[in-house]
Design a protein around this nucleic acid. Structure first.
Lengths: 341, 341
DNA sequence: ATCGAAATTTACAGCGCTGGAATTTTCTTG
DNA sequence: CAAGAAAATTCCAGCGCTGTAAATTTCGAT
């Protein structure tokens, strides 16, 4: 039902291959021919059919981006960064949500069809690295984030341990001495939570503070409401703290609410830090001091590495770190005296 | 570089077509043959190549979903609803972001390749219906939301005018008499804003209240920060109001912050409503009373109609409304006395 | 003019799969 | 057991495009 390459070729009086060359900007085509073909293309309103092209080239121009859930702001923002980076390289991005479940992750990796995408950027939540490497060894893959990653596979992440240490040290520098951690799972802790808690603990020890298990406020589920509940119950149970490192910004937003509900002033009574620097962290009340990963760089490197793999690069897995910074806002302002709106 | 249908056929000792029939679950295949073929498939680890299938069938199994930006929670949630609905029908969804600009919208509609998707669900922000109908009359399309929609094209939305009236009437029922509207554009108002403002005005008139232009607090940009600024400046300039209808939840979150900063108590001094019922609206402090569109139904109908169009349905455009409800939370609790945490 | 090299253009064989028609096998029924 | 119907399977062409290699044209230098 469309105009075919053949139709253009006939109208322009050249071979299909020449039209193909013009369409794809091949350089060795004479100006005269190019004009004639272009005129035919315009006249017929020809658009290349991607399926034909793909079958012939074996490439789809599509990268899969798999993570738990776009409705989590961090992932939505990651998705934009990845789309931008992929677009630069001439690729489009197909989102695949796993809902953070093992089945979801399996479904993505074992999807029974092939050829849908040229490669995949995968942020695992629960799958073990053993299982990851077992599946789909054929599909070029780059792991995003601090989840499991088989050694042979490329991975890009920020240094979670170090960033958590920095965030915690910031609270220490504000003079806080009873610093809690909130928002991790109640059991089966994700590697994300584990690494962040480890960094938090390190900072406490560096400061000569004794980590107190009673100040770890887990969430029944990883969500803002989970944190409202977790932090709220802890306070009601008598937990005393003047600083709170949250696993992520959503947990921090929940913590803010739990603290507000109980009349705690932030940062006066409790200074809070988040993680991810989602857009909303600027407009919460108070705005959130948070770890801001360099998403653009993360996406850029990940896409770059994936494209190298697609192009045949096959050395051992490269595990790279990208930068982050501590974005200091109202919920834990800088140590230097400063107005807090 | 993979196992081909042909390879399976040879191993199983049947024709390619029979293998194809087994793969796709065609019913008229004897149990014995099916077993033999299945064994060959398993043994070789065969996976159908989608490109081949697509070229042969002319269908891609992909629907495009185009809107401004996934980082806006409403769109992220819409995207999930659409993916779910499309998945039910055997389709996958390719996200296309327009950034809310005319160029972005044009890029999506005129993308120079064809055959990438079977149809498109498009939520226009700025494009006129005339231009929409001019482009890509070949691609099956369904318009989402209250933006421009050419008559011949299907569209699904909620009744924005009526919902805005309901939200505003809710504030009236709480005894509020100076009710503002916040979060719309400073100029070139989107049809979304226009319809919501119209419903807001209607409710005021129904209640015998005089709409006051001084209570329309536009945002320099459609974002939470835009609302923080817009509402903040209005208060500082002396605007007096005890109710505030926000164009969307993000504007409401911004308004919450602007009010908090100035010591206004919510809902005591100012009752606030949002729009969209994004997940975060449950955990803001206070949580938001908001218009909750029936996203699942919206997505379900939109996908259904799009698939009908793809299947050849070609009658005039159907313009359908789906439901919504007023989700009453803390920022504007129900009239009946009730505790507000 | 003439010849070899460089630049352009073309022919052709598929990429992997499916639709539809045609064929073969199997099942029913008298 | 034959004949016809139904079920199962195969054949074949081709979806729209591109890679490769071969053919043709053009160009520069003799």
């Amino acid at each position: 039902m469309g105009v075919r390459l053949q139709d253009v070729a006939e109208l322009a009086g050249v071979s299909m291959k020449t039209v193909s060359n013009v369409v794809r900007g091949y350089e060795h085509v004479s100006a005269a021919t190019r004009d004639r073909v272009q005129r035919a293309i315009d006249e017929l309103g020809y658009r290349p059919n991607l399926m034909g092209r793909r079958l012939a080239t074996g490439r789809t121009g599509l990268l899969a981006l798999a993570f738990s859930n776009v409705a989590l702001p961090y992932f939505a923002e990651l998705s934009r960064a990845v789309s931008a980076a992929a677009g630069q390289a001439g690729y489009r991005v197909l989102l695949e949500e796993t809902d953070g479940t093992l089945e979801g992750e399996r479904a993505v990796l074992t999807s029974s069809e092939s050829g849908m995408v040229d490669g995949i950027l995968f942020q695992p939540s629960t799958m073990s690295s053993a299982e990851i490497s077992r599946h789909r060894s054929d599909l070029p893959m780059v792991i995003l984030g601090e989840g499991a990653a088989p050694l042979p596979v490329d991975r890009v992440m920020i240094d979670n341990f170090e960033a958590a240490r920095v965030a915690t040290a910031h609270l220490v520098s504000l003079g806080r001495r009873r610093i809690g951690f909130a928002g991790h799972e109640t059991q089966n802790l994700s590697s994300t939570s584990l690494q962040r808690i480890a960094g938090y603990q390190q900072a406490l020890e560096d400061a000569g503070l004794r980590p107190d298990p009673a100040l770890l406020f887990a969430s029944r589920e990883i969500s803002p409401s989970g944190a409202v509940e977790g932090v709220g119950q802890a306070i009601d149970a008598g937990a005393v703290f003047d600083g709170l490192v949250c696993r992520d910004d959503l947990a921090a937003i929940g913590a803010l609410r739990a603290l507000h509900e109980r009349g705690r002033r932030i940062p006066h009574d409790v200074a809070v830090t988040g993680w991810d620097d989602i857009e909303l962290s600027r407009v919460t009340f108070p705005s959130l001091t948070t770890i801001a990963p360099d998403l653009d760089e993360l996406a850029r490197r990940a896409v770059e590495m994936l494209i190298e793999r697609i192009s045949g690069f096959s050395a051992a897995g490269r595990h790279e770190l990208v930068g982050y910074r501590l974005e200091v806002r109202e919920s834990a302002p800088s140590a230097v005296p400063e107005e807090t709106a």
